[in-house]
């Protein structure tokens, strides 16, 4: 076979693979939208579920999801950004940085069911918090920490060294340089990481169901159990409680995830464009 023909065939195969990946994505979105759109009404969103989810909507699940995502990112963001600042600004490569990176890399690879088991023994049983949003959020904190560390580190590293030098030369301390110059420049990148973390909290099931529980009522405090959207979806889908409602819930989940991805993508592009001037 002629090498030009070979190239043509090869490139077409590669392109076909990429296209099928997109086709899968489109199939997932369109299929869920097609099956779920019919039941996705305003009342579905703003009504609480009744009769185990057979009737009513998903409002309490949205509230629980919001609590869980907000709480876990509120705890994980200072930890993650602090870690990134420490790695980028306070040390050179050393044994400590190696340990920190090892911890973060390993944590990123731990499967969610292990987080679930861990959160269950530590928070639910050992610390006697019981199944509650706080237990779930603390567990999710550990899960999203590596993402926030990694994106914050990249964002902080991308701030030019010259700016730091200029700040130091004007009599700024390290911390003043970080808070007044470095962090403001890194904010879009950091937000990207936080939003990705929120995305994980929204879509996570295994780690949340064993820590936050699956109570259907709207939680009144973070010390009460709550059923997030993903958990609610899992329960009504698996137990065959209501297929239409399951699809509509899945659609809501997918819309959230799509929004999150679009926002982070736009932020990243803006961030990269900002860095070029």
């Amino acid at each position: 076979m002629n090498s030009r023909t070979e190239e043509k065939i090869a490139v077409n195969i590669l392109r076909l693979a990429a296209l099928s990946a997109i086709a899968v994505l489109l199939f997932v979105i369109i299929y869920v939208a097609y099956k779920g759109a019919g039941s996705l009404t305003m009342t579905f969103i703003f009504e609480n579920p009744r009769d185990m989810g057979r009737e009513g909507g998903i409002f309490s699940a949205i509230v629980s999801t919001f609590y869980l995502a907000a709480l876990s990112s509120m705890i994980a963001t200072p930890l993650g950004v602090g870690t990134a600042i420490y790695l980028c600004e306070y040390t050179t490569e050393s044994a400590v940085t190696k340990i920190v990176r090892f911890g973060s890399d390993c944590l990123a690879g731990v499967p969610s069911i292990i987080f679930g088991l861990f959160g269950f023994v530590l928070f639910v049983i050992y610390l006697k918090l019981g199944w509650c949003l706080l237990s779930g959020a603390l567990t999710m904190t550990f899960m999203i920490l590596p993402t926030i560390i990694r994106t914050s580190e990249e964002a902080i590293k991308s701030v030019s060294y010259e700016l730091r030098e200029a700040s130091y030369s004007l009599g700024a301390t390290r911390w003043q340089t970080i808070t007044k110059i470095v962090l403001p420049q890194a904010v879009p990148g950091i937000i990207t990481g936080v939003i990705l973390g929120v995305g994980r909290s929204i879509s996570e099931t295994a780690a949340v169901i064993f820590t936050a529980g699956s109570a259907l009522a709207t939680p009144e405090s973070i010390l009460e159990s709550g059923r997030t959207l993903a958990v609610h979806f899992y329960i009504i889908a698996r137990e065959g409680i209501s297929m239409e409602r399951a699809f509509a819930t899945a659609l809501v989940l997918i819309i959230f995830i799509l929004l999150i991805n679009i926002i982070t993508y736009a932020l990243m592009n803006k961030f990269i464009a900002g860095k070029k001037t």
């Binding site: 200072p78 602090g82 420490y86 400590v96 920190v100 911890g103 973060s104 590596p146 390290r174």
Partner: peptide, 26 residues
């Protein structure tokens, strides 16, 4: 400044701390 750097070191140890906790409890 010294105090802040200690605090940041503590936050930096959170991920390895979490990993250790997970390992120990499991």
């Amino acid at each position: 400044e010294a105090f802040i750097s200690k605090i940041l070191l503590l936050t930096a140890l959170s991920s390895i701390g979490a990993l250790t906790l997970i390992t120990v409890f499991i």
